[in-house]
Simulated assay, not measured.
Amino acid sequence: MTVTRTASTFAPPVMEARRWIEGVTFPADRPLINVSQAAPVDPPPDTLRQAMADAALTRDDAHLYGPVLGMPALRAGLSDQINRHYGAATTARNIAITSGCNQAFAATIATLCDEGDEVILPTPWYFNHKMWLDMAGVRSVPLPVGDGMLPDVEAARALITPRTRAIALVTPNNPSGVEYPDTLVMAFFRLAQAQGLALIVDETYRDFDSRSGPAHPLFHQDGWEETFIHLYSFSKTYRLTGHRVGALVSSPERLAEAEKFLDTVAICPGQLGQYAALWGLENLGQWVAGERDEILARRQAITEGFPALAAKGWSLMGLGAYFAYMRHPFDISSADLAPKLVTDAGILCLPGTMFWPKDAPQGRQELRIAFANLDADGIAELYTRLSALKV
Score class of each variant (00 low, 15 high):
7 A>G: 11
14 V>G: 10
22 E>P: 00
23 G>S: 14
34 N>C: 08
35 V>D: 01
36 S>Y: 00
40 P>I: 03
43 P>C: 09
43 P>S: 11
45 P>T: 10
52 M>V: 10
54 D>W: 12
54 D>T: 15
54 D>M: 13
55 A>N: 02
56 A>Y: 10
62 A>F: 05
64 L>S: 11
67 P>Y: 01
67 P>D: 12
81 Q>T: 11
81 Q>W: 14
82 I>C: 07
88 A>K: 04
104 A>F: 04
113 C>W: 02
114 D>T: 13
115 E>S: 10
118 E>S: 07
122 P>V: 01
125 W>E: 09
136 A>N: 10
136 A>C: 11
141 V>C: 08
144 P>M: 07
144 P>V: 06
150 L>H: 05
157 R>V: 03
159 L>W: 06
163 R>F: 04
166 A>L: 06
170 V>T: 14
172 P>K: 01
174 N>A: 13
174 N>Y: 15
174 N>G: 08
175 P>R: 03
181 P>R: 06
183 T>Q: 08
185 V>G: 00
185 V>F: 00
194 A>H: 13
195 Q>T: 07
196 G>N: 12
202 D>I: 02
219 F>D: 05
219 F>S: 04
223 G>R: 06
227 T>R: 06
229 I>S: 02
230 H>G: 13
232 Y>E: 13
234 F>E: 05
239 R>Y: 04
246 G>C: 09
246 G>P: 10
249 V>L: 11
253 E>G: 03
260 K>P: 00
263 D>W: 08
265 V>Q: 12
271 Q>M: 12
279 W>M: 06
287 W>V: 15
302 I>F: 04
304 E>V: 09
307 P>A: 01
310 A>H: 11
316 L>P: 08
321 A>P: 10
325 Y>N: 00
331 D>T: 09
332 I>S: 13
336 D>R: 12
340 K>R: 15
340 K>G: 08
343 T>L: 03
350 L>Y: 04
353 T>C: 13
358 K>T: 15
358 K>S: 13
360 A>L: 09
360 A>D: 15
363 G>M: 06
368 R>T: 14
368 R>M: 14
369 I>E: 02
382 L>D: 04
387 S>L: 06
391 V>D: 12
